[in-house]
């Protein structure tokens, strides 16, 4: 009985993680410029991956697999913002003009 409840919680977490990964992918396609797309990718990195990892931890139980999953999660949470920042900083140095509502109106004229 207990294991069924844990399994259900695990699957709920994995499912909602998958929802955020899908949303991040959709945002990557829909949003207008580099900076906004990095925001969408950040959604995949943080809550998408995080919820999935926690769900898998519940599924794995108190084993060495859980230890490895925790390590993966910690490394991911330290490295992914660094990579995002490097990308955004490079775009900024290269002179990519951020998209704003005004920009598009001017272009349409």
């Amino acid at each position: 009985m207990n294991s069924i409840i844990i399994d259900i919680f695990g699957w709920i977490l994995i499912g909602s993680g998958a929802f955020f990964v899908m949303t991040g992918g959709l945002g990557l396609l829909r949003l207008p410029d580099v900076y906004c797309r990095i925001h969408a990718a950040g959604l995949t990195d943080t809550l998408g991956a995080g919820l999935m990892m926690v769900g898998l931890m519940l599924y794995a139980g108190a084993t060495l697999v859980t230890v490895k999953l925790i390590l993966v999660l910690v490394f991911l949470l330290f490295t992914s913002p660094t990579a995002s920042h490097a990308l955004a900083h490079a775009a900024r140095l290269d002179g990519v003009v951020p998209w704003t509502k005004k920009n598009t109106k001017e272009k349409r004229k």
Binding site: Y35, C36, I38, H39, G42, L43, T46, L47, L77, F78, S80, P81, T82, S84, H85, A88, H89, A91, R92, P98
Partner: peptide, 25 residues
Amino acid sequence: ANSITLTPGTLSTNVNKESIEVHAL
């Protein structure tokens, strides 16, 4: 800076000694 970037919707684009430039959705 990493906490700002980790929070979705805000993104640090440039870090100086006393200020951080942030791009927000």
